[in-house]
Design a protein around this nucleic acid. Structure first.
Lengths: 200, 200
DNA sequence: TCGATTCGATACGTCCGTGTATCGAGTCGA
DNA sequence: TCGACTCGATACACGGACGTATCGAATCGA
């Protein structure tokens, strides 16, 4: 029989550190967080941290890239399963509980966006993701419009830009005033727009 | 004749510190900024800072409240001068250059929002401002819709929520990908929506 | 003009965070 | 079972940021 593991795998340690860092980053921001806070939150000392990452910034990049990869594959799978726009929105509603820590943590999402905004070499990474998402959403919207014979005279990319920005804007405002900014405000708005396009 | 002033007024010093802090906060974030950085950027030493503020946080609050007051009075004046929605949007286009440092600095705007999000006692302050702005924008939109005999079956507050969120969302995304997010994307979208309501 | 006051500069002690070097227990292969 | 290796813990030296106490020049009142 295999001996019970006392020390966690290197990768387990790494993942625990990233997961713990997500919470601490959300609470205090990347700049406001010390390496020690991260290590302690993960149940380690700084030794473990420096054994896995050379700087706090490297960890932030790893966290971001983990999330972007997860987000991409998740969206692709979702799109593949629900090619119909209306069903897609419904699917998004069932999407709240996901294992990706960033997906559950709106404060962290905005924090990381701001971190990227301040880190020029990271901007293309997130920028590309942003444009891909816009394209996806824009195409979905264009499909709906076409199906209803509506022509807004706008590029689908622009529609995507607006919708994706709306999502993040509501996310941001919900951090400040959750009572007046319902969690499903974005999805409700999407459905409203769908309805308006169906019966003009 | 009055002797030429060698030492700046207390209030001048205070304002210089706030103005300088705005830039440093934008670059490094509130948490990532030291009191010394602020003082030096303002052309003083820490002595001057601690003579005017007791903590960095107090300065951040002062900066926020200065901005909110300026923003409120500015918006009120704008609304009073341009009661017609279409003219209002046009007026916003000429609004880019304003003396309020926060108004010129989108990165700082988002940074302060995030700072407020992390500071529970500040959330009502900004939350109230947010709701006021939504109300204003929502009413303006409702006016346009009513004038064209359109009924979306939506509260004007919801329209305001969506539009204000869209503005900030585009602001945020422009920090990451300015090339694909034009500075006037928001105003262009407003005009597009106006046009769509006029000729359905 | 002269004293009192204001307010920013300077100097100090302290604490916190960092990164590295070293140690020691856990793990794996032979 | 033994030895090499891995990897997290511990210890240390250093720098930076903080807040306070003190100083001195500019200002204002009389």
């Amino acid at each position: 029989m295999s001996t019970p593991r006392v020390r966690p795998t290197r990768e387990e340690t790494r993942d625990r550190i990233i997961t713990a860092a997500a919470d601490v980053f959300a609470q205090h921001g990347v700049a406001g967080t010390s390496v020690e806070q991260i290590a302690v939150a993960a149940g380690f000392t700084r030794g473990a941290f420096y054994s896995n990452f050379s700087t706090k910034e490297e960890l932030a990049v790893a966290m971001l890239e983990d999330h972007l990869a997860a987000s991409r594959s998740h969206n692709d799978a979702l799109l593949h399963r629900h090619a119909d726009p209306a069903a897609f929105v419904d699917a998004l509603r069932d999407d709240v509980g996901r294992d990706d820590p960033l997906h559950r943590n709106p404060l962290l999402q905005i924090e990381l966006m701001l971190y990227v905004a301040r880190t020029p070499e990271l901007r293309p990474v997130l920028g590309q993701h942003l444009e891909a998402k816009r394209g996806l959403v824009g195409e979905l919207a264009a499909t709906t419009l076409r199906a209803n014979g509506v022509d807004l005279g706008v590029e689908s990319d622009q529609v995507g830009m607006v919708l994706v920005a709306l999502e993040d804007g509501l996310r941001l405002h919900r951090l400040i005033d959750p009572d007046s900014t319902p969690a499903d405000a974005f999805l409700d708005t999407l459905e409203l727009l769908q309805r308006l396009m169906t019966q003009p």
